[in-house]
Design a protein around this nucleic acid. Structure first.
Lengths: 226, 226
DNA sequence: TCAAAAGTGTTCATGATACACCCATGT
DNA sequence: ACATGGGTGTATCATGAACACTTTTGA
């Protein structure tokens, strides 16, 4: 029985946190993964994570992981779910409090390929083999992200400060995985007062320039959007 | 600094679970609480809870608590949130995975007053002093319950097998804390096929008898009700 | 006969959906 | 000149909200 081997190793339960980090890149929803080295998982990837410290709140641990692994702070971070199956980690009894984070596409870190050789973005529809129960974590995070997008304004956390209406619509379409009607979508954005125009335009494309907008409020707020 | 005293006591983090147990009783939403005895909390009440065992999934621990403290099984039980502040428990570093449970009004346990002298139901608007961060837990659980009631069918877990339409409406009104329109509410129930009539009536009241209904499906399901 | 809750439809307002053409730019 | 995405309004449909009277029983 597995329990005994666990007892031999730790004889108590430890608390970890794992962070599902999303961004929009190359017109796809992507997740940041780290390649593992330890034994049963040599060919697997995993979400960034780690044990929480004794004098550290669980939320703070998630923030720390985010900063350590991705070098980024002050992004949208929300507790997702706590995974507590006995056998979820072959190294011992580990209860993991999972979080999900949203990184704006303009804050994408070069570091990911320089500083770490084995850290990389993966489109959610082309994930490699994942360690532990991390496949379930990603699934769960995607579900949460999709529904949250529909009843809140958190899309702001995936976009740069200035953006075009097509960019915000594209973000919705990518995450929800269906097309939206341009006119109806814009009507909704305006009627909810989510965005305001800057009076400037985004030029340099091989087409008509698009007006630039900003969010009227960059704080989480519940509104029915889609 | 508090951390040191914690280190002296445990020198590691432990995982607990607390269960916010709801029922409808006396036309009020009520929570089951246990009176504490330990030092800083002699005059406080708390949610039933306990440490998780090494060979026990966190979900199973919550089920066990529910069975031990309330003697009830197979009720609606859902993970709520994990509370992980460093100082939340003066006895040591305890991370608590909170759950909430819904008990049907006909399964109310007599035991609560017999077997335990210091366990009792409290209306959520008249809570006594609560230990730890349990006030926050209850608030959080009520919020979850209210929104979940609106977009799912979990109300079935608060009602007996057979019920009248007024009873189900009353349940909504109590939890959401506002009145609903009888005709519109019934239209919604029927159009969603949530309930079906038994052809029998509930008699014995000092008024016109009400038709009895059952749920067509007693499994959690997402539907827009309110 | 009275009190108390059960039962039952229609109208109106609002929001969601469907839909197509011209415009401004870079190449 | 052409390809590319930007920008704009209306008509229809479906859903939600408001609303009042009659019925049946036990006391």
């Amino acid at each position: 029985m597995k329990i005994k081997s666990i007892k031999n190793k730790y004889k108590f339960t430890v608390v970890a946190t794992d962070v599902v980090i999303f961004t929009i890149k190359d017109e796809k929803l992507q997740v940041l993964l780290i390649k593992m080295k330890k034994k049963p998982y040599e060919e697997h990837w995993a979400m960034p994570g780690g044990l929480i410290k004794l004098d550290e709140a669980v939320d703070s641990a998630a923030e720390r992981i985010l900063k350590e692994k991705v070098g980024i702070e002050n992004v949208y971070l929300e507790q997702l779910y706590t995974f507590g199956e006995v056998d979820r980690d072959p190294f011992g009894r580990v209860v993991s409090v999972a979080y999900f984070a949203l990184i704006p596409s303009d804050k994408l870190i070069l570091k990911t390929t320089k500083e770490y050789g084995d850290i990389s973005w993966f489109p959610v529809d082309k994930l490699p083999k994942l360690a532990y129960d991390h496949k379930e974590m990603v699934r769960s995070a995607i579900n949460r992200l999709q529904s949250k997008l529909s009843y809140s304004n958190i899309v702001y956390s995936l976009l740069p400060k200035e953006f075009t209406l097509s960019e915000i619509q594209k973000t919705y379409e990518i995450i929800l995985d269906n097309k939206l009607d341009k006119r109806n979508f814009r009507k909704k954005l305006f009627s909810l007062n989510l965005v305001k125009t800057l009076g400037r335009e985004k030029r340099g494309m091989a087409n008509r320039p698009a007006s630039l907008y900003v969010f009227t409020d960059r704080r989480p707020k519940n509104v029915e959007i889609v």
